[in-house]
């Protein structure tokens, strides 16, 4: 427990430290930079890029989560049950499509910039949240669902007061998975001119500057680990304290 806590704090301090004062990491990164090349990426601030990166993730995952939860609710209603296989197939299709392909196909339609990335992240976020929300809703014990009906809850009251609260830990677990996938995928968005930490990596690859690649890669990975960890704490808190 304490070990894990210390690990988290060190990682958080490292990520924040790099964003706020990247120059202090020059001695560590110098060996990776070719002679005469800049060690730290300087065409944009890391704070700015990190915010863009996380902004992309949030802007894609929030609608993704809403749609996925809505779909899961609809297909678990008596009238929506027949759409369950169809929605599973659709959402699964979104997941199997490679993100690079989504980017490539989206650019001719919506142009360069943030939009193709948002579309890819949105599609990528659907499956884990949908499947988890589905598992959560289907997993409500039969006797509990029967009691909700028998007490005289309307279908809407049953959904809001019983089914969704009971499914919540699994839903957040799904959001956690989607968010981590989105953080790593967002980096690829910079290939089509989305602002994200990916642009540091791409600049490094273009200029053959390994230092840029390392700092962009590590920062992205650090963010993913921190977000995964943070949402894990949220899940644990929900499970510990039922509502």
């Amino acid at each position: 427990m304490t070990g894990a806590l210390i690990g988290r704090l060190v990682l958080l301090a490292g990520v924040l430290g790099f964003i706020l004062a990247p120059d202090s990491f020059v001695p560590l990164l110098r060996p990776f930079a070719p002679d005469g090349m800049p060690v730290i990426y300087d065409r944009a601030g890391f704070g700015n890029l990190t915010l863009w990166h996380l902004g992309l993730v949030v802007a894609a995952i929030v609608p993704s989560a809403l749609l996925a939860i809505l779909l899961a609710v609809l297909v678990t209603r008596p009238r929506g049950a027949e759409f369950l296989p169809l929605s599973r197939a659709l959402v699964g299709f979104g997941q199997t499509f490679p993100p690079v392909a989504v980017l490539a196909l989206a650019v001719p339609v919506v142009g360069f910039g943030a939009w193709p990335t948002l579309i890819a992240l949105f599609l990528y976020g659907l499956l884990p949240i949908f499947e988890n929300a589905l598992a959560g809703l289907v997993g409500v014990p039969a006797s509990v669902a029967l009691a909700a009906d028998g007490m005289g809850m309307t279908p809407r009251q049953k959904l809001w007061q019983v089914e969704l609260p009971l499914a919540l830990p699994l839903v957040v677990e799904g959001i956690r998975i989607s968010a981590v996938i989105a953080i790593s995928t967002a980096a690829i968005g910079s290939t089509v001119a989305a602002r994200s930490l990916g642009e540091v990596i791409i600049a490094g690859l273009n200029a053959n500057n390994l230092s840029f690649v390392v700092q962009g890669g590590l920062l992205t990975a650090g963010l993913a680990v921190l977000v995964y960890d943070g949402l894990g704490l949220v899940v644990a808190a929900i499970r510990r304290r039922p509502r």
């Binding site: 014990p141 006797s143 029967l146 009691a147 005289g152 007061q161 019983v162 609260p165 009971l166 509502r243």
Partner: peptide, 14 residues
């Protein structure tokens, strides 16, 4: 208006 008791009590776990 009708009380209802079921076998494994069906209490709302949350």
């Amino acid at each position: 208006r009708i009380g209802y008791v079921i076998q494994d009590h069906g209490l709302f776990p949350h």
